[in-house]
């Protein structure tokens, strides 16, 4: 239906997931840390072709930078080792620590980028649909989908409740402590409200025959195309070559 969507984003969710898994496996098969780090730029290129380069890069770099820096500091100073590269007082950077940090962060970067890419280029709706096709019960997929849809709703509701409390004299503007104190009372209407609306939502679902004892159908369809087959074969071949090369080495 949507011709503007690129070939990559039109792939079937399981195919996209195979790309992610293949990238992760490759990161562990290929020795050293160079390739693992390279998974990030690879993913960025893929994201570019899926038309979500900016969103992906922003998210991936923001999320990963903090973790990588943190692990580096921690591991280089505190990893047990003897080969001291640099020291200051009782603190010293050891070569073993740096190596371990490189190993650990490179794998984290690879796995995280691959997964962030997957969730960036796969609509939740498509993912859940394909899970249902595999045989996941509709109750489980309902919980996944409705939770994701409800998060922005909850956010809106929190703001409304905060407003209601301002009108009762609760100060919500100003220092962190003031805001923290203001935030706590919002929790009870938020929770009670969700309980009440959950009850009504159950009635809604029952009204729509959710518990009917038949196999559900779906007007939303996702087609596996010849590209899916092609990409899948390509991935398997590449992985096989990698493994052979690694064993032969």
């Amino acid at each position: 239906m949507n011709n503007e969507r690129s070939m990559l984003s039109r792939l079937y969710p399981t195919t996209k997931f195979m790309i992610t898994i293949a990238l992760c496996l490759a990161a562990f098969i290929v020795p050293g840390y160079g390739f693992s780090y390279a998974v990030l730029p690879i993913c960025m290129v893929l994201a570019y072709f899926a038309g979500s380069f900016k969103e992906f890069s922003n998210l991936a770099i923001k999320a990963l930078l903090m973790i990588v820096v943190f692990i580096f500091i921690l591991q280089s100073f505190f990893y047990p080792g003897h080969d001291i590269l640099w020291s200051w007082g009782i603190f010293s950077i050891k070569r073993e620590g740096v190596e371990f940090a490189l190993f650990l962060t490179s794998k984290i970067v690879a796995v995280a980028s691959a997964f962030i890419l997957f969730f960036r280029i796969t609509k939740v709706k498509d993912l859940v649909h394909s899970l249902e096709q595999i045989g996941l019960p509709s109750k489980v997929t309902y919980v996944i989908l409705s939770t994701l849809q409800l998060i922005p709703e909850m956010k809106k509701l929190t703001l409304v409740i905060m407003d209601a409390q301002k009108t009762r004299g609760v100060e919500t503007e100003g220092k962190l402590l003031v805001r923290m104190k203001a935030f706590l009372p919002t929790l009870s209407p938020l929770i009670l409200g969700s309980v009440a609306s959950t009850e009504e939502r159950v009635l809604t679902l029952e009204s729509r025959a959710f518990s009917a004892n038949v196999k559900k159908s779906s007007i939303y369809t996702l087609e596996k195309t010849k590209y899916d087959r092609l990409v899948q074969i390509l991935l398997i071949v590449l992985l096989a070559i990698l493994i052979v090369w690694r064993v032969a080495l």
């Binding site: 509701l157 409304v160 409740i161 407003d163 209601a164 301002k166 009108t167 009762r168 004299g169 609760v170 100060e171 919500t172 503007e173 209407p189 009670l192 409200g193 009440a196």
Partner: peptide, 18 residues
């Protein structure tokens, strides 16, 4: 702030559950 103004102006929300 609204909290200060609440001494002078009271507002009953549309939805009591909020």
């Amino acid at each position: 702030t609204t909290a200060q103004i609440s001494r002078k102006v009271g507002y009953v929300f549309q939805n009591p559950d909020d």
